[in-house]
């Protein structure tokens, strides 16, 4: 019956909580509420706000460009999540299976966690450049016309590779930790039963570390939707022909290239609801898996 809640001075508690509450209210909650309000206006910079009711939402609903952006975002985030996790799982398993020098490999693999996405974008823009990229001539020698400034699907893939590259390290951090916690006895049992390495990974480890995997799905989804903004901005500016125009970039462009703040706010609100639903769904999912993982 022990408790940590030994301090009971409510005033003190309030004072200590004040900074967090004030910053949260002013810079997190209030702007969110404000976004909802602003979404009913035609608002710009230095030109006055005009109430337009649901016009912005109507425009959203009928904009094929926005619909495309939604689809691109979902596709992109899905590819990021799947790509990152598949690669990271293989890499983590590889490191897990190595007996000597694990620590060195780990650091050598997880460092892109610290890599600024803007740097990732610029470096990839440079090395994958259709004209001056270092590998361009080799890839073109294979018969592929590297032309991702004009070719949408190619641009999508290049940004995707950059995004995956940057995020694998973060995933490896969690996956190696989770693999390290798998009881040795299970590995030994599997080995005695003659289970192959791949089978051991898929049949034994993956189910055991599934809570970690669910957590990573959430983090990677958020990354896929928002964290990749610098790469898109620096590599493709959403193009060509909207092929990489993910929602966050579209939102940025509406707000800070076109100064359509009201319309942008409506996009924010939609994004907020989407994030909320997504998180809710995934938390439900992780709840279910929590039992599995014990």
């Amino acid at each position: 019956m022990s408790t940590r809640e030994v301090f009971t001075d409510h005033l003190q508690a309030g004072v200590l909580l004040l900074p967090t509450m004030v910053v949260s209210l002013v810079f997190l909650y209030y702007p969110t509420v404000r976004a909802v309000g602003l979404s009913f206006y035609r608002a710009s910079l230095a030109q006055g706000d005009v109430f337009v009711g649901l016009d912005n939402y109507r425009r959203l609903a009928t904009s094929s460009e926005y619909l495309q952006s939604v689809l691109i975002s979902v596709l992109f985030a899905t590819c990021v999540v799947v790509g990152v996790m598949a690669v990271a799982l293989c890499v983590s398993f590889l490191i897990h299976e190595i007996t000597v020098g694990k620590g060195v490999y780990l650091v050598a693999v997880i460092w892109p966690y610290a890599l600024p996405p803007a740097v990732a974008g610029l470096v990839f823009l440079f090395i994958a450049h259709p004209n001056i990229g270092i590998f361009t001539s080799y890839i073109e020698a294979l018969g592929v016309d590297v032309n991702w400034f004009s070719h949408g699907p190619q641009a999508f893939v290049v940004v995707l590779i950059a995004a995956v590259w940057k995020q694998v390290g973060y995933n490896v951090i969690f996956m190696t930790a989770a693999l390290g916690n798998v009881p040795e006895s299970l590995t030994e049992t599997a080995e005695l039963d003659g289970v192959s390495r791949t089978q051991r990974l898929l049949r034994v480890y993956v189910p055991i570390i599934s809570p970690t995997l669910v957590f990573l799905v959430i983090m990677n989804t958020i990354y896929g939707f928002f964290g990749t903004f610098p790469m898109v901005d620096l590599m493709t500016k959403g193009g060509p022909a909207g092929a990489t125009n993910i929602l966050i970039y579209d939102l940025y462009r509406t707000a800070f290239q076109f100064y359509e703040f009201g319309f942008a706010s409506a996009k924010s609100v939609v994004l907020f609801i989407a994030v909320g639903l997504l998180m809710y769904g995934q938390f439900r999912l992780s709840d279910r898996y929590a039992y599995y993982g014990g």
């Binding site: 209030y30 602003l38 903004f229 942008a264 924010s268 994004l271 907020f272």
Partner: peptide, 24 residues
């Protein structure tokens, strides 16, 4: 409720509120 109030801000990353935040 206070803890939830703090946790709920996880749903409000910069990208979903940078437009009004800019105005503010």
């Amino acid at each position: 409720a206070v803890f939830l109030f703090i946790l709920f801000t996880l749903l409000l990353p910069v990208p979903v509120r940078f437009v009004p935040l800019y105005r503010l």
